[in-house]
Computed example of a mutant assay.
Amino acid sequence: MRTAAAIETFLEMMSAERGAAQNTLESYRRDLEDAAGFASAAGVQLTMAEPATIRAYLDDIAGRGYAATSQARRLSALRQFFRFLYTENIRTDDPTGTLDAPRKDRSLPKILSEADVEKLLGRAELETLDTTAPAGDHLRALRLHALLEILYATGLRVSELVGLPVTVARSDHRFLMVRGKGSKDRMVPLSGKARAAMTTYLAVRDALPNLAGNPWLFPAISETGFLARQVFARELKGLAARAGLVTSAISPHVLRHAFASHLLQNGADLRAVQQLLGHSDISTTQIYTHVMEERLHRLVTEHHPLAD
């Protein structure tokens, strides 16, 4: 089978059988097509590549300055591709089987203190109270406040947040049903403050005739029909600056980290946090346990009979 056809067949399988998201499929396509280009320049089809060719490709992207995480991601895509070829009897071996993943340091997630989150949310709420703001600015302030309250209350991935259907705001349930990676559904609780901010925003949104019947909670003129992640990130940094926070330390993903870390700091169970975040493997969630060190130290200091 030619490489281009094999890649298409692999992507179809990932979509149909494993429910891979569109962003994931596009990432696989880019990685595999890049590897295919390297193999072609070496005079071989990627589908027929030997371990030496794959190893040379990994050396090549390392030489191009790709981080260890990016190298590991590309090797992971190649592993899945060749396992698929083996399963389909297109190949009789897996050339990635003897290759080691690039070593990478696992960095701790950036988080905000609870005080900084309070400052950020407080500033967002304050800006919704400006009655002198033009209608468009007022709507954006209400939208940003709702986005932040929902994000910090639920720990959603930014793609899950901006793509929420409007139906989630039209019920009075205390939980959201979210479709995450791999089309897996999970239930996350919604705080009273988050629901109040969402309801206030929705009342103004629904008053706009051009949004009648729009299926998205945060609609926008975009390819998807809802607010782009980049727009949300830009508005968040602007809010952080107005709140007197360091903008380089603020992003939607940092707020997701804050959600998880603050739960653990206040005694939440690691398995519960894993479920709320939508992590399929608890080892992904365990990176947040560094925040528990201070809490455990305080518990020992306060309650151990021999503590100073």
Rank of each mutant, 00 (worst) to 15 (best):
Thr301Ile: 01
Glu125Lys: 13
Ser27His: 05
Ala243Gly: 07
Arg295Thr: 15
Gly213His: 07
Arg271Gln: 07
Leu147Ala: 03
Ala41Trp: 13
Arg195Asn: 06
Leu75Ala: 06
Arg295Tyr: 08
Ser27Met: 06
Glu160Ala: 03
Val168Ala: 04
Val254Asp: 01
Leu277Asp: 02
Val300Ile: 15
Leu142Pro: 05
Val188Met: 10
Thr9His: 10
Thr128Tyr: 12
Val291Arg: 07
Met14Gln: 14
Leu296Gln: 07
Leu32Ala: 01
Arg143Asp: 05
Leu85Val: 02
Leu306His: 15
Gly180Met: 04
Gly19His: 11
Leu148Cys: 11
Ala240Gln: 01
Tyr86Arg: 05
Gln22Glu: 15
Thr9Lys: 11
Gly238Asn: 15
Ser76Thr: 14
Ile282Pro: 08
Gly136His: 06
Lys104Pro: 00
Thr128Lys: 07
Ala258Val: 02
Glu114Ile: 15
Lys237Val: 05
Glu118Ala: 15
Arg55Glu: 09
His297Val: 09
Ala77Trp: 09
Leu120Glu: 02
Leu227Cys: 01
Ala72Tyr: 07
Ala20Leu: 14
Arg205Tyr: 04
Met48Leu: 13
Gly213Asp: 04
Pro209Thr: 02
Phe226Met: 06
Thr96Gln: 03
Leu32Met: 13
Leu161Asp: 04
Leu129Ile: 10
Ala56Trp: 07
Gln71His: 05
Thr301Val: 05
Leu108Asp: 00
Ala62Tyr: 01
Ile111Asn: 01
Leu148Ala: 06
Leu190His: 04
Tyr57Pro: 01
Ala16Leu: 15
Ala307Phe: 13
Tyr201Trp: 13
Met292Ser: 05
Thr128Gln: 06
Leu161Pro: 05
